[in-house]
Each structure stands twice: as C-alpha cells, then as structure tokens.
Amino acid sequence: MNIVFSATRTAIDSGAVIVLAGSAELLMERTGMLNLGLEGFVAIGAVSAVIAASSTSSVWLCLLAAMAGGALMGSIYAMATVVCRANQVLCGLALVLFGTGMANHLGAGFSGKPMSARFVAWEVPGLSKLGGFGKALFVHDPLVFAAYTVIPLLVSFLLYRTRHGLNLRAVGENPAAADAMGVNVMGMRFLYALIGGAIAGAGGAALSMSFTPGWAPGLVAGSGWIALAVVIFAAWRPGWLVLGALLFGLMRALSFIGQEQGWSLPAPVLNFLPYVVTLLLIAAPAVFKRFRRATTPPAALATPYFREQR
C-alpha cells in the first residue's frame, strides 16, 4: 500500500511540469501558434530560476525570474512568427536549439550545486491528515498545487466562459473572421506568446525549484516534447491535459519506484517507458476510432495571418 501512495505522490510531483508547459502550449495553439520550441522555453525557465537563486533566496523572485525567462522566449517567438510571419515549425525548432543550448551553457557553472531557493511542501489543513492517502494527495509544494488547480481552472474558465476566450479561440480557428469582428489578431497572438512563455517558464521552475532542485545537464530531458504530445492527446482541452500529465507522471514514478524496490527491469528501460507511453498516447486516438475524441486541432494552427491575403 505504501508503494501506491508514494507512486501517487511522485506522479503528481513529476507531472507538474507537464501540466504547466502543456497549459502554455494549449493557450498558444488555441490562438493558432504551434510552438514546437516548448522544450527550449522550459529549459530557459529552469535555468533562469537557478541563476536567480544565486543572488536571492526568495522562491517567489526565482519563480518570477523563470517566468520572465519564458516570456522572453515567447517574445522572440512572437517577433519571428507573428510580427514577421516566419515559418512556425522552423522558428519553434530554432528556439529548442537556442533554449536548450543557452540553458546548458549558462547552467554549466551551477551543475550539481545545491539550490538555495526551493519550494517546500505545504499541507492542506485537515485533508493532509487522512493517512497515506492524504499525504499523497494533499502534501505538495505551492507550485505543484497551482499547476493542478489554479492554472487548468483558469485556462478552462478563460477559454469557455469569457468573451475574451471566445475571441481567443476565434483567432485560432478563423483569424480572418475574428479580424472582421474587430479582434486584434496579432495583438492576441503576441499576448498569448508572452503569457504562454511565462507559464512554460514556470514549468521549468517546477523542475529546478521543486521536483529535482538545482541544475543538471539532463534536467529537462524532453519534458517540453512530452507536454506537446500530451496537448495533442488532450485534444486541446485543459481537463484532459491534467489527466495526460498524471499518466506521464505515473510512468516517471514507476521508474523511481522500480529502482528503489530493485525490480528486475534495468533502470534505462524504466527511464524510457514514459516516452514510449507518450508515443502510444498520441498514436492511439489517431489509429483507433474508439479512442478518437470530437475535437480537432485549431483550424488556423501553424498558419501565419496575412490580412492582405485574405
């Protein structure tokens, strides 16, 4: 029974980065921006927090630094793809190289050093006392709680319950129509590149300030790519995103527990399981009709908007 509790706990902790990065991607894709650079955004967010921690011990300032780093990446992305209308796939991949390369270069000096600013676990009053179950679900640090509650709820509310969210989705589905209705297409996309960047940066902080505090060369290890895949699995809906992230987290947790318990599977096999499962997650709905969900990608995804060519 203890294994189940600790697996749940680790699954939730390790899925936090996926929820955050996935929410960022979901918002950006809903406005029509396919941001393949997510991996680079997360890396820059993670390293920004680590660099900030060398001059402050305030966790919130470090989180702010991570979000600023992510937003900076978002602004570069938006300058290239929204303002200049460059190819989104190419620019996204360019930002993966730029982000991971820069993060590895800047982080090299901090590698393996202890992190001064890290989030500490916080107990939900009352609920955390419910035995192992309470410990697994209700004792996490604030960033993890925010990742699973505030962010998805906010994103969901914004998308489906506000006029602004309706406009946002319109920009992603049919920018020409949104433009005709008076929505500022470029402004909307730029705004969500910044917001998405900041949230993805916070996802980086979930790695370097919470899950595995500090910087290490393989810290990000595809989290951004997995988040991208989970957004597809979730069919661009926040609720499913949380589920996908938890599933990924569970796989990650299995690899930790497997090593702890001395399962006969070698560690690298346990380490690559999450990637294989993620691959299955995006393949299954495409291959088997039974798993197919109604939502299709935003119609204007990855297409730059030229008012003159309408």
């Binding site: 680079g40 360019a94 730029f98 991971t100 820069m102 090299a108």
Partner: peptide
C-alpha cells in the same frame, strides 16, 4: 558545444 548549439538556433531563427 552547448553555446554553439544556441548560436545555431539563433542562425536558424
């Protein structure tokens, strides 16, 4: 090498 990776990303962008 990591820095060169970043420079390549910038070139590509």
């Amino acid at each position: 090498v990591a820095l060169m990776f970043a420079v390549c990303g910038m070139i590509l962008l």
